[in-house]
């Protein structure tokens, strides 16, 4: 069955210079296992295409069932320089929530 990350998690994103971080919080212990398996660095990088120019690194916060994605070169030079309407990456995570995953 195809589901979206949103079915399994909620999140938030923000900026530090040209780095955007996106946190996902699983809605259940079961969802946490699926997230860890499906939402990989490679898939996140591919899902954002050229919007993320640098690397994507994933970190785990197991006791709150959260994943943190640190995306470099993701804000068009940084919040103070960016021409993007979302120059601070405030809603970057919502695009990640739209990503489709296999949830078998």
């Amino acid at each position: 069955m195809k589901r979206r990350v949103w079915d399994l998690a909620h999140g938030r994103s923000g900026d530090k210079g040209d780095v955007c971080n996106m946190g996902l919080i699983a809605r259940s212990g079961e969802a946490w296992e699926v997230l860890k398996r499906e939402v990989t660095e490679e898939r996140v990088k591919a899902h954002f295409g050229d919007l993320i120019k640098g690397s994507v690194t994933r970190y785990e916060l197991p006791n709150i069932h959260a994943l943190n994605f640190v995306c470099r070169g993701a804000l068009d030079g940084g919040g103070t320089l960016s021409l993007r309407s979302d120059h601070l990456g405030k809603v970057m995570y919502t695009w990640l929530l739209r990503m489709e995953i296999d949830d078998e």
Partner: peptide
Amino acid sequence: GTVSEQLVYEVMDPANYLSADSNADVSQIR
């Protein structure tokens, strides 16, 4: 949930949250 969302806001490596006073490790937070 509300605290979790704030915890992941603008954090890089949660095991090394660098600040002037410490290198905090929030990765195992409960």
